[in-house]
Nucleic acid binder design. Structure first.
Length: 867
RNA sequence: GCCGAAGUGGCGGAACUGGCAGACGCGCCAGACUCAAAAUCUGGUGUCCGCAAGGACGUGUGGGUUCGAGUCCCACCUUCGGCACCA
């Protein structure tokens, strides 16, 4: 191999001045050359408000900068790059930005483990990833990079928090959290089986007061908004719908005379109210403590033991499938609101404090959980619903809708009518009424971590919790050398940094304490797409006009793993800012595309499994164009794909073949060009064939791309190369050889073939350019293309060049393909029938049989039914 | 358990609204070039029967609709993903 410098010289000369192009595909050279050209020309820069061009905002989910990226990550960005480049070619004004979600645990952990500065660690990783992205030829607007951990960004994350505060959307609440002595607060998935995922210590429950954001206030809007999202995958919409978990039902209260209180319960089946035989509380329910005060010592001890038992089990295990339902009678009764009967009161672990009211009315006859519980504790079962048709058995709960019975004046009503009437009657009696419950919970904004965006709130003895003044933003994170990140007894490590904590009250000026929790990183990433529109604005989160110009995002590409979390938060923030009058639109992402993951050796490609493929190695061995091509060709983008090294070689072989064909063609053309006089001949049939294939390919590729079927689009371009290669070898190259030896007899005839071939090649470089942009630019330039091929218009096909006079169809006899026939393209059924029956092979098959039916599907098959 | 997606050669995958199953690529086999290997090129390649021409079978399983089903309908099996004591 040549050193890249020496060969750079060689190829540059050969393409531009000399008479031959080397047939060796020097991808390193080509790729470096065009990456430099694009950079110099600022070819990827987005331009706000370009006149006469429709804006197109293409976004990929930005990465967490953890060291380096592997091909699994790169697939996402390759997909996005194809879409961006495609839209450049379609004449849109493209915004294709990139940034980094750089706050969060890995940087903090690196700081703890290795004593590095998280800022520096982030910046190094970012630099490396940018290098890798440029190496892949991605067309990002590098002037719009956004980094969530930089103060110029997180100033606006803080501004958002204050905005929420202003709008009454944040509040403080005390809730139990998973606590590890060593690692502090843990998320549920970090506390599997009651043990810390890092150190294996037993996780305990601790109460902690934290900031919450009222996402539930937007539950209905977020749910209804899903109907507008026509271009989102169905499964994401379903997941969001389940996550919001809207449930319409009825609230009803039961008297609890023992402590002089009313117990509210929520039910979706108020029609079963007469079947209530007991009530169940979550063990954490506040009334349980009240009841303990009035029961005897023995009972109190029992209750305490039961609560202690439940608390030992973490949430995950407690809500595990098929778990035996454990409960305990509290020894007090409450009163049925309609019958006045006494019903026993229990606590049980299957009732959850954070759904509904934390108490349920138990109807064992019509709820399977209550049924199991009643059987276990020998409680009465009262049947109040019967099926509309047929019998039921008492071996199990009957949970369907039916006809009410044993329900006083409601007897004979359908469940639906019963729910309606009972809810109304309860409402007028002041005992309850219709109510809607959501599974969606408010969003915990606080994290007890150092490496996050400081929550811009201040606690003053006199004024309470007060937001920092806007002109004081950003509230800067103290430098890492001032922080002991492992100190967590007070919650966040920042609580020990006096110069951070001590401040003055923004309202009264008295000495005050700064909030030491930082924000969840989901908040950083829930609005970054707005900042890309106006990344350098120092006065606003983003200029109003420019945001409304680019937004909503035309196409958002990312992994399915963000179907609920990130995408829900981004939608929430957009809706809030819409309501606040900052944004003109309510939904941030017009089209959502979820790409599949890359697997290798049967497992998801990941650093921890050590089965990654490095883009650096790929680019060195095969080049960026090959790496891009393979991740697009191996399968449809929404599906998972298995990484296969042999497949990579296949794609590389294709590019090598393409390059060699191009070089051979160019060399042959040069020879013929200079030696032959122009002799006009009739256009050979070959020219029409080349044109037909050229335009068929344009049509097919354009259609496939419209459906984001990049794998089949690439297959069609491979077919074009397979078609062109023998023409070069058998027609053009021999003519060139003859010409060189002085025999120009073929030159006149071959000239139109060369012209058609050249046109096909130029078209191919256009079609290929979104996928393999470097080799495409090189071919485009050599064939005299104007400007960058990435900005040149997408090729258009001419239907009249595709059409043929005759077509070949299949002939099917009694369901089996038996023969083929050539018919005029515009033939009708009668004339096709004539041609088909004149055929010998076909005659043999239908000999002595009666023709029952003849069907001609234009352009495809003829079908004969014979008996 | 509920909801959703998917089952096609040795492998990754094509087949848009029912119309010639297996495009394209990988792998494999044979041949060419080579002292040889690699690279490259040419041809072949669903399975079974057959020397061949040719034939039979074939899209997870079982049924159905249709002139015609990978595609539509019903039932089932498997895999993957999401949710899961939600009252």
């Amino acid at each position: 191999m040549f050193s890249s410098r020496a060969s750079a010289h060689l190829v540059q000369e050969s393409v531009v001045e000399a008479k031959t192009i080397r047939e060796v595909y020097d991808f390193t050279l080509i790729e470096r050359k065009w990456q430099a050209e694009w950079e110099n020309a600022r070819a990827f820069a987005a331009h706000d408000f370009t006149e006469g061009k429709e804006p197109y905002y293409l976004l990929e989910m930005f990465p967490y900068p953890s060291g380096y990226m592997h091909m699994g990550h790169m697939r996402n960005y390759t997909l996005g790059d194809v879409m961006a480049r495609l839209n450049w070619k379609k004449g849109r004004s493209v915004l294709h930005p990139i940034g980094f979600d750089s706050f969060g645990l890995p940087a903090e952990q690196a700081a703890i483990d290795r004593g590095v500065d998280p800022r520096e660690w982030n910046e190094e990783c970012i630099e490396n990833i940018i290098r890798q992205m440029k190496m892949m030829g991605f067309s990002y607007d590098w002037d719009r990079i956004v980094v969530t951990s930089r103060p110029d960004y997180y100033k606006w994350t803080q501004w958002l928090f204050i905005k929420f505060h202003e709008m009454g959307l944040v509040y403080r609440k005390e809730m139990p959290v998973n606590w590890c002595e060593e690692h502090g607060v843990l998320a549920n998935d970090e506390a599997q089986e009651g043990k810390c995922w890092r150190c294996g210590r037993i996780v305990t429950q601790r109460k902690l007061e934290q900031w919450y954001i009222k996402t539930t206030a937007y539950a209905d809007e977020l749910l209804d908004g899903l109907n507008e999202l026509e271009n989102w995958p169905e499964r994401v919409l379903t997941m969001q719908k389940n996550w919001i978990g809207k449930s319409e039902g009825t609230r009803v209260s039961f008297d609890l005379p023992a402590i002089g209180e009313k117990i509210d319960v929520f039910t979706t089946r108020i029609d079963t109210l007469y079947g209530v035989t007991f009530l169940v509380f979550a063990p954490e329910h506040p009334f349980v403590a009240r009841i303990m005060e009035i029961v005897d010592d023995e009972k109190r001890a029992e209750i305490m033991a039961f609560i202690a038992e439940t608390a030992k089990v973490d949430v995950i295990e407690r809500t595990a499938e098929g778990r035996e339902k454990k409960g305990l009678s509290l020894g007090v009764d409450c009163v049925h609101p309609l019958t006045g009967e006494s019903v026993k009161l229990f606590i049980a672990d299957y009732v959850l404090m954070d759904y509904g009211t934390g108490a349920v009315m138990a109807v064992p006859a019509h709820d399977s959980r209550d049924y199991l519980f009643a059987k276990k504790y020998n409680l009465p079962i009262k049947w109040v619903i019967r099926p509309v048709e047929g019998e039921w058995t008492e071996d199990d709960a009957f949970t369907g809708y039916g006809i009410m019975m044993n329900s006083d004046k409601y007897d004979g009503l359908s469940s639906e009518d019963g729910i309606d009437e009972l809810s109304r009657d309860l409402e007028s009696a002041g005992l309850g009424g219709f109510e809607t419950q959501y599974r969606l919970k408010d969003w915990t904004a606080s994290r007890q971590r150092y490496w996050g965006c400081p929550i811009p709130m201040v606690y003053c003895e006199k004024c309470g919790h007060v937001p920092e003044k806007l002109e004081n933003l950003p509230v800067l994170l103290p430098p890492p050398e001032k922080v002991d990140m492992e100190k967590r007894d007070r919650g966040s490590p920042l609580a020990y940094v006096d110069e951070f904590v001590e401040c003055v009250c923004p309202k009264c000026g008295a000495r005050a304490r700064r909030e030491t929790d930082t924000m969840t990183t989901f908040l950083d990433s829930a609005w970054y797409f707005l900042r890309y529109c106006d990344p350098k604005n120092e006065a606003e989160i983003a200029g109003r006009d420019v945001v409304n110009h680019w937004m909503p995002v035309d196409c958002y590409i990312g992994g399915i793993e963000h179907a609920v979390g990130h995408l829900m938060y981004a939608r929430f923030i957009t809706r809030v800012l819409n309501k606040a009058g900052v944004l003109d639109f309510a939904e941030p992402f017009d089209v959502l595309f979820t790409q599949g993951m890359i697997y290798k050796d049967g497992a998801k490609m990941s650093k921890s499994l050590g089965n990654t493929v490095s883009p650096d190695d790929m680019v060195e061995d095969y080049g960026a164009d090959t790496a891009r091509l393979f991740s697009l060709f191996a399968g449809p983008p929404e599906r998972d794909l298995e990484w296969q090294d042999e497949g990579v070689q296949g794609c590389h072989r294709f590019l090598k073949r393409l390059w060699r064909m191009f070089a051979e063609f160019w060399n042959a053309r040069e020879r013929i060009k200079e030696l032959s006089a122009s002799i006009s001949h009739a256009e050979p049939e070959l020219v029409a064939e080349i044109r037909r294939m050229e335009h068929t390919t344009i049509k097919g590729v354009t259609e496939d791309i419209g459906r984001m079927q990049f794998n089949t689009a690439i297959a069609k371009m491979m077919e074009l190369v397979n078609f062109l290669a023998p023409i070069l070898a058998n027609e053009i190259a021999p003519a060139a050889v003859k010409t060189v030896s002085g025999d120009t007899s073929d030159a006149g005839e071959i000239k139109p073939v060369i012209a058609a071939f050249e046109s096909a090649l130029k078209t191919l470089s256009g079609l290929l350019s979104p996928f393999t942009p470097h080799i495409a630019e090189e071919i485009w330039e050599a064939l005299g293309g104007v400007g960058f091929v990435m900005h040149a218009p997408w090729p258009a096909h001419d239907e009249s060049l595709i059409a043929t006079d005759t077509i070949e169809i299949g002939v099917v006899i009694n369901g089996k393909p038996r023969a083929r026939a050539i018919v005029p393209a515009d033939a009708d059924e009668a004339s096709v029938k004539e041609i088909v029956f004149a055929d010998e092979t076909i005659a043999k098959w239908i000999e002595g049989k009666e023709i029952k039916k003849f069907i001609y599907v234009p352009g495809r098959i003829a079908n004969i039914v014979a008996k």
